[in-house]
Design a protein around this nucleic acid. Sequence first.
DNA 1: ATCCGTTTTGCAAATGGTTTGCACTAAGAT
DNA 2: ATCTTAGTGCAAACCATTTGCAAAACGGAT
Lengths: 143, 143
Amino acid sequence: MIKAEKMLRQSGKRVTRQRVLILDIINQTKGHIAAEEIYRLAKQKSPRMSLSTVYRALQVLKKEGLVEGIDLGNDRYHYEIKRQDHHHMVCRGCGKVIEFQCPFGKELMSRLAEENDFEITGVSLTLSGYCPECRRKKAGNSN
Amino acid sequence: MIKAEKMLRQSGKRVTRQRVLILDIINQTKGHIAAEEIYRLAKQKSPRMSLSTVYRALQVLKKEGLVEGIDLGNDRYHYEIKRQDHHHMVCRGCGKVIEFQCPFGKELMSRLAEENDFEITGVSLTLSGYCPECRRKKAGNSN
DNA sequence: ATCCGTTTTGCAAATGGTTTGCACTAAGAT
DNA sequence: ATCTTAGTGCAAACCATTTGCAAAACGGAT
Ligand SMILES: [Mn+2]
Ligand SMILES: [Mn+2]
Ligand SMILES: [Zn+2]
Ligand SMILES: [Zn+2]
């Protein structure tokens, strides 16, 4: 049994061909993938796949905590397998995304939770800036 | 001269009645305001105001660094006057937003920049969770 | 105060990612 | 094999934001 299927079974939701395929695609993606691209890839293996099914599966997978949607400042959301806290730097020049580990310990987290009387369930940290290549380009341009 | 107008003059962009009004509305807003709401308020003072003008003004104001758009996990963006780094906690129950100061020093920032060879120009940190009221409701519910 | 080149506005229409209604199909329990 | 219910495919709807264009307004120079 494929890994994606195993994940789905554990979630208790119905294991459909489509969900397995979609989750498998996300699983095999290095980096972050948008819905439309999942759809494109899925249709290659399952030509009747519909874009709505992709969106609906993504909703379910998110709710089940298997997949995470992230806002990279683009117009569309991107998805990845949910894993240990990590965060993103997005290059404003070329869109490249670099991942890095969570820089705040649990202590900081619980200090913030306590100070603000807030139960924290999710952290999203996104830095934006310029990668080496785009910095070079910026320097070269005289605008 | 009103504060909003002063800010605009300093930016060097044309100072139009609409931009002043829009910036003034954002200025007077406690918290975070969406485009549509700016539009609604602006139209009260200037009935011919158009929603496109609001959006176009917001783009300019953002580019000029006077205003910041933030993604609070809703479907729409929210805007506020740009100020010292601060971040947001959003309650997943009621949508309430709490602001808090930046918990990482400049050192951490430049360490991240160095380690990843990335020039960091913007930081966005958003925590999600539950406020006291919504926590109580959750506890009460037996679902 | 007036003129003029350029920017900005208002309006309506377009865009485009995401959602939804509905009839049909397939998962999983018995 | 049968039944119940959740999930799918398709097309249409949604809706926040963007865009084309002609008219209006800004601001520097006269
Ligand atoms: Mn990631
Ligand atoms: Mn804020
Ligand atoms: Zn880059
Ligand atoms: Zn709440």
